[in-house]
Nucleic acid binder design. Structure first.
Length: 153
DNA sequence: GCCAACGTTGGC
DNA sequence: GCCAACGTTGGC
C-alpha cells in the first residue's frame, strides 16, 4: 500500500468531473513523462491512496481523496492519431505509455497550496519542492496521515 | 502573461 | 555521450 499525489488541471478534469464519472472513476491517461509513468506502471497497486490535486488554476490545492482502482494498462490515447496524446512511436506490441484508473473516495474542502506550505510536517513533500513539475509524486505514509487526519475537515 | 525550472530532442 | 535549443509545467 502506497500513497500518491496526482495533479489534474480542473479545466481538464476537476474533482467534480471525477465525481460525475461512471463509478466516479477516471482513466489517468495522458501522462507523457517517464518518471510519472514508471510510478503508475511499476509501483501502483489497487487500493493505493491518492490525493487529487488541482494544478494550474486559480486555487491550486488538494481537492479530494481518491484511490487507485485498476492496475496500469496501456494508455489508449497513445494509439489515437486524433488525440493530442498520440505517440507515433508507440505500438500495441510495444506500448510506451500506461495509466491506472483512479476512483473518488471523497471530495473535501480544498486544502490550498499555501496552507500545505505552512505545515513543517509537510516540508519534505515532493510536490512542494522548488522546481518540481512531476504530475505524480509519492507521499510518505506520515505525510498522507497528516493530511488526511489533520487537514481534512 | 511571465518566467524559473526542468525534461526532451537532436546535431555533432 | 555531450549539451544547446526548445518545449512544458505551473505558481504567481
Amino acid at each position: 500500500m502506497r500513497y500518491w499525489l496526482m495533479k489534474s488541471e480542473p479545466s481538464d478534469c476537476s474533482i467534480d468531473d471525477l465525481a460525475a464519472m461512471p463509478n466516479q472513476t477516471v482513466a489517468w491517461y495522458g501522462v507523457r513523462n517517464y518518471q510519472a509513468r514508471n510510478f503508475m506502471r511499476n509501483q501502483m497497486s489497487v487500493g493505493d491512496g491518492v490525493l487529487f490535486y488541482h494544478s494550474n488554476c486559480k486555487e491550486p490545492g488538494i481537492a479530494g481523496i481518491a484511490k487507485v482502482s485498476a492496475l496500469a494498462y496501456p494508455d489508449a490515447t497513445q494509439f489515437d492519431s486524433k488525440s493530442k496524446y498520440f505517440d507515433p512511436k508507440a505500438t500495441h506490441e510495444q506500448p510506451r505509455w500506461f495509466n491506472v484508473d483512479v476512483q473518488l473516495v471523497k471530495k473535501i474542502p480544498l486544502i490550498p497550496l499555501d496552507e500545505l506550505r505552512r505545515h513543517p510536517e509537510l516540508a519534505d513533500m515532493r510536490t512542494l519542492q522548488r522546481g518540481n513539475r512531476l504530475s505524480i509524486t509519492p507521499l510518505d505514509p506520515a505525510e498522507w496521515a497528516f493530511i488526511t487526519n489533520r487537514l481534512v475537515h
